[in-house]
């Protein structure tokens, strides 16, 4: 996953900083955002391969960000995550075009596998799309 650029979005700043650092230690260009607004700003300013997006956030929620990404950055793969998953969230997310849906706590290795499947769907596993 060399040259991969990933935007990790969650309103918990401590979580974002730890995940981004762990991504960087694995050679991934990770960028963090703690709100939907900040995520959209990053997307306006630079290009990303994947966005990992928390659904429930203050202000613009994850599903709204996903809708905006679909309109403005359709090439970006979006992986949704939430603290307490519900079939409804998962279904809405998939209908809106999210490539995967993860429940927290997200194991980093699982996340990386899901990211790999998202950017390389031809070599991905069953849950990748």
């Amino acid at each position: 996953m060399d040259d991969l650029r990933l935007l990790f979005v969650d309103d918990e700043e401590e979580l974002v900083s730890a995940v981004v650092e762990r991504l960087e230690l694995r050679g991934i260009d990770g960028v963090g955002a703690t709100s939907g607004d900040e995520a959209l700003d990053h997307l306006r300013e630079g290009s990303f391969d994947v966005v990992v997006l928390d659904i429930k956030m203050p202000g613009i929620g994850g599903l709204e960000v996903l809708r905006t990404i679909n309109r403005r950055h359709p090439e970006v793969k979006v992986i949704l995550m939430t603290g307490h998953g519900s079939a409804k969230d998962s279904e809405i997310g998939r209908r809106l075009g999210a490539v995967a849906y993860l429940e927290k706590p997200v194991d980093l290795e699982d996340l990386l596998m899901t990211v790999d499947q998202a950017v390389n769907p031809e070599g991905g596993g069953p849950d990748g799309a």
Binding site: E12, L15, A18, V19, R22, K56, G83, H84, K104, P105
Partner: peptide
């Protein structure tokens, strides 16, 4: 409150992962 506690556990999980790294 359950969401808030989950957030705490998630953060601890990631920081512990960073320590492992």
């Amino acid at each position: 409150l359950s969401h808030e506690l989950s957030n705490v556990f998630n953060i601890i999980n990631e920081i512990a992962g960073l320590q492992e790294d």
